[in-house]
Design a protein around this nucleic acid. Sequence first.
DNA 1: CCGTTTGTTCTGCC
DNA 2: GGGCAGAACAAACG
Length: 268
Amino acid sequence: MPELPEVETVVRHLKPDLVGQKILSFQSIWPKVLGNVHKKYFNDVIVGRNILDVNRRAKFIVLHLDNGFIPIHLRMTGRLYTNDNIPTAKHISAVFRLSDKMLIFQDTRKFGRVYWYDQWAEFDQKHGVEPLGELFTKNWLQQSLQGRKRQVKALLLDQHIIAGLGNIYVDEALWSARIHPLISSNNISSVKSNRLHESIKVILEQAIAYNGTTFINFTFQDGVPGSYRNQLQVFDRKGLPCKRCETVIKKIKAAGRGTYFCPRCQKI
DNA sequence: CCGTTTGTTCTGCC
DNA sequence: GGGCAGAACAAACG
């Protein structure tokens, strides 16, 4: 379940491998892998094009071509990696044949999708503010919370508002800022809002530094796994003592997701 | 069969 | 009609 730090990690690993490569062919193994474009058109528009850059927007890995953009969403179980040969692994959704390697999209549950946009703005405007970008200020967060009456966890998971946070890092950030996941966003004080702002930034930056968390069995091509799992303070700690006050961590449903919090540190 | 996962899409309520 | 909550959905697995 890759979130912002995991997608960022994938991008940083793939970028040197992909920039400068030419797309020779594209093969969709899983018929529904293309999200917003037909196979024939996609083939026509990308074959022979060069990869100029690779970056991240929200939870998308974006290949920048000289005539448009290929955003790839991993959803829950997607993996993107390069390989010298045609892959023999199971659950391959798609393969890009490049100048001197293969780009493999492997996805056990097949929720992941590949998209096509010829205009950056059309893709970009679908997503909210980047929590590590310049627009994510203390003021912005405070107004975004104050101006709505939504459960704060649901608000933070809403990709149209903030782009890139998922279940794990929302729970971590709310614990760190001592905010109950179900509190209505307009009832969050400016002190807590500022604390949340800081928590989100620090947690995401640290998770990136650790190459992310959430790939349970994930290793990169060079065998390095994401190790932020060892830094988690509250997620997946149901029944264990809070690391701040030793109260037993509870698990509830919030925004339809399993949600971990400390009932003493995070009061409504 | 059920629960779990993400983000989109829908339905229904106020 | 907007804002919101919650359910359904796409798929696979244990």
